[in-house]
Design a protein around this nucleic acid. Structure first.
Lengths: 243, 243
DNA sequence: CTCTTATGACAACGTGATTGACGTTAAAAG
DNA sequence: CTTTTAACGTCAATCACGTTGTCATAAGAG
């Protein structure tokens, strides 16, 4: 039963940066988990770099690609570290006010903003469980808000689950839309001003009558509006539970 | 302004299957867009095939991989066709009852079920705009439900956008979780029974008190519950608009 | 100063998407 | 029925990718 959290203690990940031999690469840089994660995020933010690549990451670090495997067991291990860093960036300036609705809105907005601002990173991160410090802090904060709002421990867990997956789901598709290759992304966005705006009203009457609004809104994120709808639903649940 | 829906008319996609020269491959099969899409979905459903690969798809079709480029301009073109097929599968048995809440719940549930049942396909499809028949039918249906519920054309478009991205967002992350390689997926799922269940209650009091519920619920989809929360929010909006 | 070993570099393997050239053959033109 | 045309399947080649095994070397321990 407790074999779940078995991690290979001899694996690179678990060695601390402090005790490392600080050998330099051919180009003089000194590698570390932190530097690799930061470089990966920076690399994924530059235009033209569509996806994370060990080879390009090595190049950006001035090191041989295979050197990364001294710091992360696999690319998946690296991805989890990157994902947790993204959570950390999102949580950097959360302030808990005690107003559950404002607090959830703030956390959701911060998460969504950070993820869509780093779409290529978000695509890798949005659906992962990092089991790392920043994620744990986020769960603790989220549960706390819901507990203080009046939910019991069980309902707090349930509504936290709904809220966080709701938010990360939007982050995932909005980030994926931003992360598409130039051509495909442009075509997807233009669809609502082009294809859907000119569908015949006899076959598609509902689309035709809503076409202007669709053209205006479908290429922007629905998250802010959907979040208010969701929060209204949470409010309804709180009202039902008494209090 | 109307240059948006320019599509290259000489491209393979736009030629109809009817007028095609029906030449056989080396192994005797006769290719078509439809066969390729079906084979791709079948291939992605088989265990061990992590991602779509033109080479494996060619192998499964008994054809040279490069033959696919006679039917789809690029893999992205193929992906859009696959995505639209997935929408078609989801809409196959929708029945409109006139009860907006039941109808939205039905469509959302069907979409989410189909997408998570084909996780590898869903990962490619969830964030795309296919501009193809099945998607158009889905938009028309969705808008119709909201119009009949009492929303005007503008609000119908806005709430459709929120609803569909809400649903596809959940589909995206739930599918991504199912689509992870065996090792990574197992680790992610086990996190809530392992890592999070044994966090110290002094540092993480909220997690500790909710740990049993987290362990029970976090490895299943939050969509059904979140959907009710969302629908409650839509109800609140309808109440606010009068009627 | 010596010894150990962590770690960076290198080379190689298998797999991926994509493209251009080529030849065959089905369909269209007469 | 014959001729023509071009659609389409195949082949070969190119370049990028993740990952592993081997080797040397420099950093730290003694």
């Amino acid at each position: 039963m407790s074999t779940f959290d078995d991690r290979d203690d001899t694996a690179p990940t678990d060695r601390l940066a402090a005790g490392r031999r600080r050998r330099t690469t051919r180009t003089g840089t000194v590698l570390s988990q932190e530097l690799i994660v930061q470089t990966a995020i920076r690399l994924l933010g530059q235009p033209g770099n569509d996806a994370l690549s060990v080879r390009r990451l090595g190049l950006a670090l001035g090191a041989d690609p295979s050197a990364l495997y001294r710091y992360f067991r696999s690319t998946d291990d690296l991805v989890l570290a990157v994902a947790d860093e993204l959570i950390g960036m999102s949580l950097k300036d959360v302030r808990i006010t005690g107003d559950w609705r404002a607090d959830l809105r703030g956390i959701g907005t911060d998460l969504h903003r950070t993820y869509t601002a780093h779409p290529h990173v978000a695509v890798l991160a949005a659906s992962r469980v990092t089991r790392r410090p920043n994620e744990m802090r986020g769960v603790e904060i989220g549960l706390g808000i819901l507990r203080d709002a009046g939910f019991g421990p069980q309902d707090a867990a349930r509504y936290y689950h709904r809220f966080i997956d709701f938010t990360l789901g939007f982050a995932a598709i909005d980030a994926a839309a931003h992360a598409l290759p130039t051509e495909a992304g442009a075509a997807d966005r233009a669809a609502w001003q082009g294809t859907y705006a000119s569908l015949p009203s006899d076959r598609y009457p509902r689309i035709a009558e809503s076409a202007p609004t669709l053209a205006r809104t479908m290429s922007t994120s629905a998250y802010p509006g959907a979040l208010e709808v969701f929060l209204d639903g949470v409010q309804a649940a709180l009202d039902r539970h008494g209090r």
